[in-house]
Design a protein around this nucleic acid. Structure first.
Lengths: 339, 339
DNA sequence: CACTTAATGACAACCGATTGCCAAAATCTG
DNA sequence: CAGATTTTGGCAATCGGTTGTCATTAAGTG
């Protein structure tokens, strides 16, 4: 607070100011601050002192321009207001900060075009990219990954490093849970047609259903928002099923609301299983049985994988795939099938 | 997809590539692309065509370095995982994108130090800043605002443009609502000690209470998270009040959960009023009576004010203060006072 | 048709750092 | 103490644009 402020010019100090103050060349200052070994320790200390005194802050633009490295990582999510991404973002942010990187967060609005153009934009503004729930085609994603380091989340494309949350296997847990409660007519409430997660989950579910000899129908697609829950609930009621496995918790919560409006009791008349265990799943009415995902951890792992790509140390090889386990959390929205 | 790709070098094209292709100087290309009037329309069209053909994308770093403008705006929020900020972020993102700006979102982790250092970092990486619910002192904030264009949200410091959500006046609506239900012993569940919103709200509430001759006590401070709701609920029960006005919906929802665990019925034994009407307030159990804020709109307005500062048009003067109205949304968590 | 005025585009300096190259200085060796 | 070897630090080019200056060209006017 009360340090000596040499009241320099009004603009922020540069390495040239430091150089002038110390009587050395600007390049020496640059070296002293980045590769400390290549400079005399006494000179370095003088420079560091001067830098501190001037409150020097390196200009990241200039740094990026000349070095090619930006120190930033782009994180693309389809919808910031989807609570699923809160924890994901928190995870990436924590891990990035720990490594001294900056996070560039972009909401791609569930649009493949916005996603593609953002990817292009970020090519020079970020050192790498994490793409959650990409809406792009496999080819487009592969091409983008060839141009810059990239890790996807919940999107499995051969050749692109990915973090996958293993909801498909949790889906069969959910199915077993419903079967054990006596349900035999079950619906899968599908997510967006372009969502690979939704497709994979449906595949796993229908295979598991066949093995167990129960009937599972597919309804949808539905947009992953609570508002879609109304249509999903109506469709489910009309189809005559007694239990639903929803693409995600948002839809499931929307269904709970709609069913309540229509006087259909959960779980007495209809059981609902969600997916993700997002904020709200534990306090909705009734609390939601759901497949809980370690979302924040997925974000952290994605960043670790990306940074390993960026800074290839001699250490360990680079994992190109990481599968996060998922488990069923049973709450109040599932119960015995009505007879 | 199938356009002619002149298969240039592997690196992204620059204005020099365009200049070479068109047989003009690089500076002409720069002018053609930024100030179109200063260049012959035919030349310009040739340049634009070449740019499109090469898939030219301007390097934002270089642009920022030479022009001083970054085309980015920093948005600082204390906690990304707080649903309150979802809509705020969505609002800022929408408005920024519409104006061709990029959003740099940073989670300051409710820490004044992180906030201060981020502000310093962003000084050269952003053209302006929006700070939500700042934890900094008035002086620090004023000093930061002097260095770069800034708009605060829910933080009133003379000399710093601000968007204020008028929760204090909604507080008295909430109080009247509770009084009309027969409550006379009411608690205010305070937020963080460093939160100006919490302080302003308490001031408004205690004044209103005095006017109306009812007793209002203050409990807390509590961290604005659902987990704090347990302690808040216990404190409220112990203090003997029959109704609570919580700092925000997160705490209120946490209280609902705790009261349910303890077998205290809401609203029969205890009425709860939240604040903000966040995601979840409508589907918790019981649905929460709360003071609804136009959050996304607040984000949009903040960006508008900031951009007006950045691009001072002859048009209208610059608003330095914008107060957003708030109203009480009554749901199931409030009811008649127990006799 | 000669002359003024406006429009146009090339040149070069600059933004703030990084980095390859080389000379000067310091250290070590015999 | 001279000669070989290693450090150390300065110079200058470079990243990809922007922008001021100025010469050239085209258009407008009497």
């Amino acid at each position: 607070m009360a340090t000596t402020q040499p009241a320099a010019a009004d603009r922020p100090p540069t390495i040239h100011d430091i150089a002038a103050l110390c009587g050395v060349a600007a390049s020496t200052v640059s070296r002293a601050l980045s590769s400390p070994d290549r400079v005399n320790i006494r000179t370095r200390q003088r420079i560091e002192a001067a830098a501190a005194q001037l409150h020097y802050i390196p200009n990241s633009q200039a740094k990026a321009l000349s070095s090619g490295r930006t120190g930033a990582v782009g994180v693309l999510v389809p919808d910031i207001t989807n609570p699923f991404y809160f924890d994901l973002i928190r995870g990436t942010q924590l891990q990035l900060k720990a490594a001294g990187y900056t996070q560039l967060l972009v909401d791609t609005e569930e649009s493949d075009e916005v996603e593609a153009s953002t990817l292009e934009q970020l090519r020079k503004s970020a050192d790498g990219i994490v793409v959650a729930a990409s809406r792009l085609s496999d080819e487009a994603l592969l091409a983008a990954a060839a141009k810059m380091p990239m890790v996807t989340i919940n999107r499995d494309v051969p050749g692109v490093p990915a973090v996958l949350i293993d909801t498909p296997s949790a889906t069969s847990q959910a199915l077993d849970h419903l079967i054990s409660l006596g349900h035999t007519r079950i619906a899968y409430i599908a997510g967006p047609a372009t969502s690979q997660s939704s497709t994979r989950r449906w595949t796993a579910l229908s295979e598991a259903a066949e093995e167990r000899g129960v009937e599972v129908c597919r309804l949808g697609p539905f947009s992953p928002k609570t508002q879609s829950g109304a249509a999903a609930a109506d469709a489910a009621v009309h189809s005559g099923v007694t239990a639903c496995i929803a693409f995600n918790d948002l839809i499931a919560i929307g269904m709970l609301q709609r069913l309540r409006e229509r006087g259909i009791r959960v779980p007495e008349h209809m059981s609902i299983v969600g997916c993700d265990d997002i904020f709200g799943a534990d306090f909705c009415n009734p609390p939601l049985t759901t497949m809980a995902s370690p979302i924040e951890q997925a974000g952290r792992v994605a960043i670790s994988m990306l940074l390993a790509q960026l800074n290839p140390l001699a250490g360990g090889g680079i994992r190109s795939r990481s599968v996060m386990p998922t488990h069923l959390t049973v709450r109040g929205s599932t119960g015995p099938a009505p007879q």
